[in-house]
């Protein structure tokens, strides 16, 4: 029961409190780049969830059974990048062959996030936080969901921005960054909510 509770806490924390985009500022590039339209934002979010889960499933065993065993913890970053990049390419080939429907819907987003810093960040943080395999997978799922949530929310904000009469100096990226910071501030309101939920 205690273990199950820890899973729920990890999930809720990574979605709301430690949101990767809005709280840790990882994965800002796709957050600003692909959040213009809702359907693109959702596509990107789902692709990120998918890649995070697959990446964690592979990097966790590598860390525990290969790197830790040979005392090579300091090679973590390079090995993880290498493995994740190869893995995403492999998944793409497999999807293209056997599930073309899913491949088409993930589209360009899949190769785009091969070495996205949010993906790398999740895998490394899972190790640093000392999670076991199940906890790592739940944490990745939570981070992916948090990314999707941030993307969907922000695409709504950007749709509203499109129809506004913005001063010329703020048009384009400046107003987008301003809006992003306000959304991020709003997310800080979730701080402490999860701890108190399970008191």
């Amino acid at each position: 029961m205690e273990y199950f509770k820890s899973l729920v806490v990890i999930l809720m924390t990574s979605v709301l409190v430690n949101n990767y985009v809005l709280n840790k500022f990882l994965g800002i590039c796709p957050f600003l780049g692909v959040s213009k339209k809702l359907n693109q934002a959702t596509g990107m979010g789902i692709a990120v969830i998918f890649v995070m889960l697959v990446a964690t499933a592979v990097t966790w065993p590598i860390q525990i059974f290969v790197l830790n065993r040979f005392g090579l913890e300091y090679m973590q970053t390079i090995v993880f990048i290498l493995v994740i990049a190869a893995l995403v390419q492999f998944v793409e080939i497999v999807l293209k062959k056997y599930i073309p429907g899913l491949h088409k819907s993930l589209g360009v987003y899949l190769p785009l996030i091969t070495t996205n810093c949010a993906v790398l960040g999740v895998t490394i943080n899972n190790i640093n936080d000392g999670y076991d395999f199940t906890q790592s997978m739940v944490s990745s799922l939570g981070c992916g969901l948090g990314f999707l949530l941030a993307m969907v929310l922000f695409s709504g904000v950007r749709t509203r921005l499109e129809s506004e009469n913005i001063p010329k100096a703020f048009q384009g990226l400046p107003i987008t960054l301003l809006a992003a910071s306000i959304v991020s501030l709003a997310f800080f309101g979730f701080g402490g909510i999860v701890d108190n939920m399970f008191k």
Binding site: V66, G71, L72, L82, F90, I93, V94, K96, K97
Partner: peptide, 27 residues
């Protein structure tokens, strides 16, 4: 040597996996 061998080994495995899969699962 351990570092070089482990990383090169992982890289080699990934490379073989990718090239084989792209050959057999080419659309």
């Amino acid at each position: 040597l351990a570092a070089v061998i482990v990383v090169a080994g992982i890289g080699l495995l990934c490379g073989i996996l990718l090239s084989v899969s792209s050959k057999f699962m080419a659309v």
